[in-house]
Amino acid sequence: MPTPRDQRDANTLDLLGDPSVEEVRLVSRPESASAARRLTVSVLRLWSLPHLADVCELLVSELVGNAVRHTGARTFGLRMPRRRGWVRVEVRDPSRALPCLLPVRELDTSGRGLFLVDKLSDRWGVDLLPRGKTTWFELRATDR
């Protein structure tokens, strides 16, 4: 029998789309980071990988924040393809400008996004597309 949390997850995916099935387009606004986090956590729960939720929530927020702040796009896309042993989260935007991993000092209040992605993910990168790019990170998906 589904729990209330399971029902909320299903409702979120029904309402916004399921990024594990196809790309979900979101409006390029700061508040869309919340929707991206909800989608990400909902998919992880459906995959029985809730132990990855905290890290994925933080990292998807950073990628969405970069797409919203630095690309000037009207929308961005969120996908979550899964391969055996790995969870991948992708944020696609129409800009071909590459994100920069900057050195971070202890008292810096900005510029930490890709630093966090670099430190907390198992791997990450950027794929240039004919029109835009996909910035992604991957985490090992071991069942617990």
Rank of each mutant, 00 (worst) to 15 (best):
G65S: 14
E106M: 11
T3Y: 04
D108L: 05
E23V: 13
D143I: 12
L59Q: 04
V89D: 00
L120Q: 10
L52R: 02
L107F: 13
A97H: 13
D54A: 14
P4R: 02
V24Q: 07
V24F: 02
T40C: 08
D122Y: 05
V21W: 06
L139N: 00
A36C: 07
V21H: 11
P19D: 03
V60W: 04
H70F: 14
D9P: 00
K119R: 15
A35H: 13
P4F: 01
W47R: 15
V117T: 08
R131G: 11
E138W: 03
R92Y: 01
L49Q: 08
P4W: 01
L116F: 13
V64N: 06
T71Q: 07
Q7P: 00
E22N: 12
K133M: 13
K119W: 09
L15D: 10
P50F: 00
P94Y: 02
W124L: 02
T40P: 03
L44R: 00
F137R: 03
N66R: 07
S110W: 11
A141Y: 00
L15A: 11
R123W: 01
G132N: 03
A67G: 09
A10V: 01
V117K: 03
R105S: 14
E138D: 12
G72P: 06
T134K: 11
S20A: 15
P99F: 01
V64M: 04
E57Y: 09
G65N: 13
P94K: 05
L101T: 07
R69G: 13
L58H: 15
R69Q: 15
R88I: 10
D127M: 11
D122V: 04
S32V: 08
R38G: 08
H51C: 01
M80R: 05
V104K: 03
K119C: 13
V60A: 02
L49D: 01
T135W: 08
L63K: 04
R92I: 11
R82W: 10
P4S: 06
L102V: 14
T134H: 06
P19Q: 05
E90N: 07
T134A: 14
G65E: 12
P94R: 12
N11F: 14
D143L: 14
E62N: 11
D118P: 08
F115I: 02
D143N: 12
W136C: 04
E90P: 02
V89Y: 00
D143F: 11
V89R: 00
S20H: 04
V87A: 10
E23Q: 14
E90L: 08
R123F: 01
L128F: 04
K119Y: 09
R96K: 12
D54I: 01
L128Y: 01
S48Y: 07
F76H: 10
R140I: 11
G125M: 08
V24K: 04
V104W: 07
V60F: 07
L13T: 02
W124V: 02
R123D: 12
L26C: 09
D118T: 10
V43A: 00
V21K: 13
P103E: 10
R131E: 15
D18I: 01
F115Q: 12
T12Q: 08
G85Y: 04
P50M: 02
E57S: 15
D18Q: 01
V24C: 05
P103K: 07
C56V: 09
R45A: 05
V104T: 09
V41M: 02
L58K: 09
D108I: 03
C100I: 15
E22Y: 02
